[in-house]
């Protein structure tokens, strides 16, 4: 069953798209991250895994700039997150697309307006061009054009995810941040979602960071796995290397996958 991991180890010389150094995050007296380091290189698809409440989403929010760590530095595209003037920060913000866990579609806007919104904010395109690109993005995420006029409240959970992805892709981002992209999708949709992201990764050379609990998503998509445990990144390596790791969290988290792998290997041998 297990799909081959996309064989694309990041060359050491390439620039880090995201670099987190010595991140410390506290919520009240609860310390979530303590001296966390992580570098993500261009073209990687990094799966961020960790137990519930281990601060994966918080880490993602640090990268987006929605929250600030208590200590430590966040660098995106080689520059500190808060470097430069407002225009530079905005330009940097527009180089990343975010898919929030629950879609976060604007409920007052229709599907088409949701996807058009970032394009319209950019202010360099005509209405026809925007409509054309919206139609294209909708098609990319396998939505029918007829759904463009629906309101978010009328969409199913899977459709919300796909529209949110279309919106995240609207500005052709170089860095795509996905929070639980396949949670709540049926296996079929989930598989096509993974295909879609991988195709985009291939064509556009996207760098993708995803938070996921879904082992299938992880195994089929990620070029590397970053394990968040004990308040820091305990390992950042390919899936095979991660599976070989001797760590209690890794053992528990990947138990299903390891079992499946050994079973399929056994079947192949016999």
């Amino acid at each position: 069953m297990s799909a081959p991991v996309l064989d694309d180890p990041a060359p050491a010389g390439r620039d880090a798209v995201v670099r987190l150094e010595g991140i410390v995050t506290r919520f009240g007296r609860n310390v979530v991250h303590e001296g966390l380091d992580l570098s993500i290189h261009a073209g990687e698809i990094v799966a961020l895994v960790g137990g519930s409440g281990s601060g994966k989403t918080t880490l993602l929010r640090h990268v987006i700039g929605l929250t600030r760590p208590a200590a430590g530095g966040v660098e995106v595209f080689g520059e500190a997150l808060d470097a430069g003037g407002a225009a530079e920060r905005l330009a940097r913000q527009r180089r990343m697309g975010v898919l929030f866990q629950h879609g976060a579609l604007f409920s007052a806007f229709s599907v088409a307006q949701n996807i058009a919104f970032p394009l319209r904010e950019l202010g360099v395109m005509s209405r026809q061009e925007i409509d054309r690109l919206v139609a294209l993005k909708l098609e990319m995420v396998e939505m029918e054009a007829a759904h463009a006029l629906l309101m978010p409240a009328e969409l199913s959970g899977g459709m919300v995810k796909r529209v949110a992805l279309a919106r995240a892709l609207a500005l052709e981002p170089e860095l795509l941040l996905l929070d639980e992209p396949t949670a709540g999708l049926d296996p079929d949709r989930s598989a096509s979602f993974i295909r879609l992201i991988r195709a985009l990764h291939r064509e556009l050379g996207l760098t993708v960071v995803l938070v996921t609990h879904d082992l299938d998503t992880l195994a089929q998509m990620a070029t590397s796995v970053a394990v968040l445990a004990e308040r820091r990144i305990v390992s950042h390596a390919s899936l095979d290397e991660t599976l070989a790791l001797d760590h209690p969290f890794v053992a528990r988290f990947f138990r299903g996958l390891q079992a499946r792998r050994s079973r399929s290997n056994g079947a192949g041998a016999g």
Partner: peptide
């Protein structure tokens, strides 16, 4: 893909 998207034009309200 742009060529094909013409066939899936957005419906107008």
């Amino acid at each position: 893909r742009i060529e094909q998207s013409a066939a899936h034009a957005l419906p107008t309200p």
